[in-house]
Design a protein around this nucleic acid. Structure first.
Lengths: 143, 143
DNA sequence: ATTTGTGCAAATCGTTTGCATCTGA
DNA sequence: TCAGATGCAAACGATTTGCACAAAT
């Protein structure tokens, strides 16, 4: 059993996370998952995560980062945030919440707690059901 | 004065619209403006508007459509709606309102009136001011 | 051994840009 | 006339895809 001791706690968690999601815990996926989930809530683009991985000596191709992010999203481990138009952000916080978008910096941050509270949700059009309500509060540095 | 009679009402309006916006009323801009504003509120992509123009025998290049849409947006005649991630929609309704996004169909429609009413707008982070609050209600056809 | 994932490079898609040519005032 | 607009094609950036090779069960 000594050999198992080389596997530390965090690694185990990520392994389980991936297993439960039906994803093989490969080197790349494990590494990416660790980068994503060991630093609190994050809003990150594929490009950025790729750079971060390479910087951390986790050589992984950009294509694989894209694949992985989408697989994680399908598995419910991530949530896609469409705000910016020409870039896709992935949010490690999958719970119900909304976002600030900082124009100029192109940064996405969570709106803490349930501060938003939409007064009245409109009813969906004929034959449609609501999937989710996204609120984006666009902010910019005070002049 | 007889020559002026060939200019009909709608054309005049568009001319003024453009003039007021500081834009020269060129053939293409006049035509595009007419397509945009003579059919009620629209949510349209550059690609689609281009197709529509070509179909209506208004030969205009895609590049010019993009240019025009951006100029209109800067002039406050249009509003950009970032919903979809990989496509930009332009909304001819510039007033304060929110949207349904129909997944699958990738269609954007206005939420009528002031049905949404956000309960409490969170305060912006340090040194930031709120530019605008966007609400997108994602819907899908009922199963 | 078999299935699944990965890397690379090429392909795609929406959008932008450079530049020579036209057009409206 | 001549600043400003347009068209074309090439350039671009983000994302996807095809396919040979590598790793996981």
């Amino acid at each position: 059993m000594y050999s198992d001791m080389s596997i530390h706690q965090e690694e185990l968690n990520v392994h389980h996370l991936l297993r439960n999601a039906g994803l093989r815990p490969t080197r790349q996926r494990v590494s990416l998952a660790e980068m994503l989930y060991s630093k609190g809530d994050r809003h990150i683009s594929a490009e950025l995560l790729h750079e971060e991985a390479v910087a951390a000596d986790v050589p992984v191709s950009l294509a694989t980062v894209y694949n992985t992010l989408h697989q994680f999203t399908e598995a419910g481990l991530l949530r896609e945030v469409a705000i910016d138009g020409n870039k896709t952000y992935f949010d490690t916080n999958v719970s119900d919440h909304h976002h600030f978008f900082i124009e100029g910096e192109n940064k996405v941050i969570d709106i803490p707690g349930d501060v938003v509270g939409i007064g009245s949700i409109p009813e969906a059009p004929e034959g449609m059901e609501i999937v989710r309500v996204d609120v984006v509060v666009r902010v910019r540095p005070k002049t």
